[in-house]
Design a protein around this nucleic acid. Structure first.
Length: 263
DNA sequence: ATAATATGGTGAT
DNA sequence: TCACCCTATTATC
């Protein structure tokens, strides 16, 4: 679930349900009991997404910081449904509740701590001012493989393991090529593709990189391998050229690519 | 019933 | 590079 598109979509959806309202906050599971008590009955003023980082600002000055990590989820529920699972934080608005489960981080922080976190992030393709030049500058400094650089949140924020394979495929770039050796044009194409794909991700609330004319079903009815070109398709045929999708470890995680379409 | 897996990240070795 | 954290779901015995 959680790459940058998920977090930006959450910020948007939670704003709609919760901003401007005095919330009920609790920690049914108990591990965030003190924090929840400090948020309870305060009014949410704004939500923000920065790459994979989610922020809530409350009218009592509290700043809630959430990072979902690999397995965290923020789920939208109707108000009087049964509580299921290890709910770290439950926020109740007038019509809906949001339940946070399994986050890597969920804490109240101050403005300085938030600045420290945000200062480590590269440009956000979904941010208010997407900065292709800054992206290119940061790529030029890295001799690591491009697929490793795309995962590095200080190079670009919001890309995860699915998007890095998909974006390299869409741009026809071998994920193992050193980042700094890409041409200006290739860097610009990577950025444009990243912005485009993450925006689609926000709109559909899921990662779908295949283009409409390459599938016969509505995008919403595709299963995971059908929605993607490369990620976890090792051994399968490339849907563009029929060659066999390969995979390898790059930057401590697996990446998939088509040896013919990407060079 | 137990293990493996997951779209992430950190801190120790 | 490895161990570890967080939880739910799926796979394997």
């Amino acid at each position: 679930m959680p790459e940058g598109h998920t977090i930006h979509r959450l910020a948007r959806d939670q704003a709609k349900d919760l901003v401007g309202h005095q919330l009920g906050a609790s920690s049914p599971q108990g591990r965030f009991a003190e924090g929840a008590a400090l948020l309870d009955r305060s009014t949410l003023e704004a939500t923000e997404a920065h790459g994979k980082h989610l922020v809530h600002r409350y009218d009592n000055g509290q700043i809630l910081y959430v990072h979902l990590g690999l397995i965290g989820k923020f789920r939208r529920r109707k108000l009087d449904t049964e509580l299921i699972g290890a709910i770290r934080l439950r926020l109740e608005g007038p019509e809906r509740a949001w339940e946070l489960v399994g986050p890597m981080r969920c804490e109240l922080i101050d403005e300085d701590e938030l600045d420290t976190i945000l200062s480590k992030l590269g440009p956000d393709p979904l941010g208010p001012k997407p900065d292709v030049d800054e992206f290119a500058r940061r790529l030029q400094r890295r001799r690591i493989p491009i697929a490793a650089a795309l995962l590095d949140q200080s190079v670009v924020s919001g890309i995860g393991n699915v998007y890095r394979s998909e974006i390299c495929f869409l741009c026809g770039i071998d994920p193992r090529r050193p980042a700094k050796e890409l041409s200006d044009t290739e860097m610009e194409e990577l950025w444009a593709s990243t912005v485009e794909q993450l925006e689609i991700g926000v709109r559909l609330n899921r990662i779908v990189t295949v283009s409409r004319d390459e599938v016969d079903k509505p995008l919403s009815r595709l299963n995971r391998t059908e929605r993607l070109y490369a990620y976890k398709r090792g051994g399968m045929e490339c849907r563009r050229c029929g060659d066999e999708i390969k995979s390898d470890e790059v930057g401590a995680r697996k990446v998939w690519w088509c040896p013919t379409c990407q060079s």
